[in-house]
């Protein structure tokens, strides 16, 4: 290996390390800080306690926010995933989407959230819909569409075209084929899509701050306004709780990808 080659390698490794340190540092600071017994955020904590967790979990305000976040995230998740699956069915039956439609569905990925948020704000004010949880759920679902659509198209594209005809000749009607054949095959992608669109809404800040409910705000929105006023270790505790939920979601996704590799292979061509 040449010298310049080695240097490039070292630089690449260093870059990746720095990248991860940068990404993980806030978490490394936040988690221990949440276990402090003091009134102010400090790192490292000199005295460990669950004080701020009990404060957060006993606070009406935080719990209401969490409930609001959860409701919106679930509605948003269902809308985004169902739409994604429907697009998947269209692609399965009628072939690839036209480039215009594809671009439209993927555009939320390209447009900055802040642009969507300010645009929505101006539309929603005259309609007196600002702060409506349903509107926020729909807006967040739209932002999650690129992910759910891509996952769903990939899943349905991989399903053999004659599988539908096969199930149909075996006596199954369209709804039976959908429920008993297609959805189970696409199940891993659908679950992944549910998790990712849930996550998308669960930690989304920009839209929540601009057009979301104000009095009973979603959790990220509430954290943002809380941070502007005071910065107690309660914030670290909430962050850590959010982190745990995200890790659980990531773990489920990881397990899904293993299951998928094992169970969705075609028969091999060699004979035993």
């Amino acid at each position: 290996m040449s010298r310049s080659h080695i240097l490039v390698r070292i630089a690449a490794v260093a870059f990746v390390c720095a990248y991860f340190v940068f990404l993980l540092a806030p978490i490394v600071v936040m988690v221990p800080a949440s276990f402090t017994a003091h009134d102010i955020l400090s790192f490292p904590p000199d005295q460990l306690s669950m004080r701020w967790y009990s404060e957060v979990l006993n606070s009406r305000e935080w719990l209401d926010s969490a409930a609001m976040s959860l409701e919106i995230a679930i509605v948003s998740m269902v809308i985004a995933t169902v739409t994604g699956v429907l697009v998947g069915f269209v692609v399965y039956h009628y072939g690839p989407l036209g480039s215009g439609l594809r671009l439209l569905l993927l555009s939320p990925m390209l447009v900055p959230h802040i642009v969507v948020a300010t645009g929505l704000f101006q539309v929603l004010v005259p309609m007196r819909l600002l702060g409506d949880p349903w509107v926020l759920a729909i807006a967040q679902a739209a932002m999650a569409l690129p992910v759910t659509v891509i996952l769903s198209i990939a899943a349905f594209d991989a399903i053999e075209r004659s599988l539908w005809t096969a199930a149909s000749t075996l006596g199954a009607r369209w709804h039976q084929i959908t429920i008993k054949v297609m959805l189970p095959i696409a199940a891993t992608s659908i679950v992944a899509s549910l998790i990712l669109s849930f996550e998308n809404s669960w930690h989304e800040v920009t839209l929540a701050v601009f057009v979301g409910p104000a009095v009973q705000a979603t959790l990220p929105s509430k954290m943002f306004s809380f941070l502007l006023q005071e910065s107690t270790p309660a914030l670290a505790a909430v962050s850590t709780l959010l982190l745990v939920i995200t890790l659980v979601c990531a773990a489920i996704l990881g397990l899904l990808s293993i299951r998928r590799r094992r169970n969705e292979a075609q028969p091999t061509s060699e004979e035993p």
Binding site: E160, R161, S162, T165, A166, V181, A187, Q266
Partner: peptide
């Protein structure tokens, strides 16, 4: 429609349901 025709069809491509065992496929 196909589901009313009482036809048994075998295809060139593999059309077994991948999420079902051989016996469950046959039971479908």
């Amino acid at each position: 429609p196909p589901h009313k025709r009482r036809i048994g069809m075998v295809f060139q491509r593999y059309t077994l349901f991948l999420n079902r065992t051989v016996a469950e496929n046959i039971a479908f």
